[in-house]
């Protein structure tokens, strides 16, 4: 199943996601006009979502992403980890 969602972060940037899932996420593609340093962290975040059960809560997903990127020193401008978690749930619940 493919689902997409779009979120304009208040005071921030546009965040979009396309998920392929079947109970668990098989593939996640995140796009938008935000900034992230280092840029390669976005792929790490996308990979960290693979295998995630879609019924996980927004908070659990946010924690999972944070854990994946801790230590890399990621800076996001215009979006935050909580927005990514939110949009995952938005896509699933669309």
């Amino acid at each position: 199943m493919y689902k997409s969602a779009k979120l304009k972060v208040l005071g921030g940037k546009l965040l979009e996601i396309t998920l392929e899932y079947n109970g668990v996420i098989k593939k996640a593609t995140i796009t938008g006009d935000f900034f992230m340093y280092p840029e390669s962290a976005l792929q790490d975040i996308e990979k960290s979502l693979v295998g995630t059960k879609v019924e996980r809560t927004e908070q659990e997903i946010a924690e999972q992403i944070s854990k994946k990127i801790e230590g890399i020193g990621v800076t996001m401008i215009g979006i935050g980890v909580e927005d990514i978690a939110k949009i995952v749930k938005m896509a699933v619940e669309e």
Binding site: E16, T29, I30, T31, G32, D33, F34, M36, E39, L42
Partner: peptide
């Protein structure tokens, strides 16, 4: 386009 944007979109 920005590095995280979708060309098709």
């Amino acid at each position: 386009i920005g590095t995280f944007q979708s060309m098709a979109n």
